[in-house]
């Protein structure tokens, strides 16, 4: 009985660990993507500013990378 209970415990623990790891992986990937999207939006804004600026110097007060 006790021996069998051990296997039941292992099976249910493994099932929930797999589910929790998957939810954590979704959350982690979402966080990474949010960061990437923010960076890309910033980069795009800077590129647009540079293309709108006839002198081609960009915004001299901006501390963001222009490349």
């Amino acid at each position: 009985m006790e021996e069998n209970l051990k296997w039941l415990w292992y099976a249910f623990s493994a099932a929930w660990i797999i589910h929790i790891l998957y939810v954590a992986s979704i959350a982690s990937r979402a966080k990474d993507l949010r960061g990437q999207i923010d960076n890309l939006k910033t980069l795009l804004q800077d590129q647009q500013k540079r293309s709108d600026d006839p002198s081609g110097q960009g915004d001299p007060h901006s501390d963001r990378p222009t490349g």
């Binding site: 296997w7 493994a14 797999i18």
Partner: peptide
Amino acid sequence: LVFCIVNLVTGMFWAKP
């Protein structure tokens, strides 16, 4: 795939005893 893996893993823990 997550549920499929859970199915395989729980099956193994059932098969052993």
